[in-house]
């Protein structure tokens, strides 16, 4: 336990020091890593812990991003207020989508969420919503400046803002998953009937898991919109949802730290692979997805856990 706290402390210190050691473009990329980590944690709560497969989480990310952008663009809301607002909207939306999803098991839920992911860009382009969403053009928002005259440039300030939100979300997620609720979620995943018999309200927990998962992803979407300064329908296609799926499979299903490994993977691998060809990142993603299912079903987090246990056993 002490080792883990020490490790977390070192991690936070490194995370605070990093933006001063790298260029502001790299800082922007690191911000996106944090954003993806929150989104992946959200998807992992639903798919990893609760066993409900979602192939459409990009839709909730899009919803969060659009909430943030519309609130800033149309209502002039401050940037720090739009993040919880987006989370709240996505919590409700996820809960509502989770209600019909209760009747869908395994493959069928995957199908329904896949359809949601594919249809999302079209919904965002819908011309009756154009007044708010800006249609195909999307919305451009300004990058927030550091407050109180703190001498930090915008990219670095946003990184620290995102880091703070990430810490809050991870503490929330950790608290949620290590206790009674987390065990209930896992019980529902592993033994649906037995968990019901043990007094767990399956329907409530499953739709709540959907809501909370969407909330995490929505918060990530809002932060992502702030970082990229731009939202447009075509950046939230079904491939975004697939990227998230790649992230949790590579990072590790049903693992909190896995979200961070997954986020690093989906942010930096395409950068490296892009140099080969425009299509290469996706080919690599696909190969990694299949490869991890065959060879390392617990992902990077599982492999690290295994190594640590082996070392301790020696």
């Amino acid at each position: 336990m002490r080792g883990r706290i020490l490790f977390l402390g070192v991690l936070i210190v490194v995370a605070c020091a990093l933006p001063f050691l790298v260029s502001s473009y790299r800082t922007f990329q690191l911000t996106l890593v944090l954003v993806y980590a929150i989104a992946l944690l959200g998807l992992n709560i639903l798919t990893g812990y609760n066993g409900q497969i979602s192939l459409g989480h990009g839709a909730f990310y899009a919803l969060g991003a659009y909430c943030a952008a519309i609130l800033i663009d149309k209502a002039g809301a401050p940037y720090w207020a739009v993040v919880p607002a987006a989370g709240g909207v996505c919590l409700v939306a996820g809960f509502l989508f989770g209600l019909p999803a209760l009747r869908l098991e395994g493959l069928y839920l995957a199908l329904a969420t896949f359809a949601l992911g594919v249809a999302m860009p079209q919904l965002l382009k819908y011309h009756h919503l154009e007044k708010w969403t800006g249609g195909v053009q999307g919305i451009v928002i300004a990058k927030p400046e550091a407050p109180f005259g703190i001498p930090l440039e915008a990219d670095r300030w946003l990184y620290f803002f995102t880091l703070a939100v990430t810490l809050i979300m991870f503490v929330l997620g950790w608290n949620l998953l290590r206790g009674r609720i987390g065990r209930a979620l896992v019980a529902i995943r592993d033994q649906h009937t037995a968990s019901e018999a043990m007094g767990i309200h399956n329907a409530l927990y499953k739709s709540l898991a959907f809501g909370v998962s969407a909330m995490f992803t929505g918060v990530a979407g809002a932060l992502g919109a702030l970082a990229v300064q731009f939202v447009a329908p075509d950046s939230f296609g079904v491939f975004l949802s697939i990227v998230f799926l790649v992230g949790i499979v590579v990072g590790g299903l049903a693992s909190i730290s896995g979200a961070l490994y997954g986020a690093l993977f989906i942010q930096f691998i395409p950068n490296i692979a892009d140099e080969i060809s425009k299509a290469a990142p996706w080919a690599i993603f696909g190969v990694f997805m299949i490869g991890f299912v065959y060879l390392m079903p617990t992902g990077v987090a599982g492999a690290i856990r295994l190594l640590l246990t082996r070392r301790r056993a020696q």
Binding site: G51, I53, W282, G286, V293
Partner: peptide, 24 residues
Amino acid sequence: NAPVLGVVVVFIGLLVILNSVAGW
């Protein structure tokens, strides 16, 4: 005979590979 999630991930992986190879 893998769990559903594994199978879905493999299918999606296949989708992505075919799509990107065609693009390539």
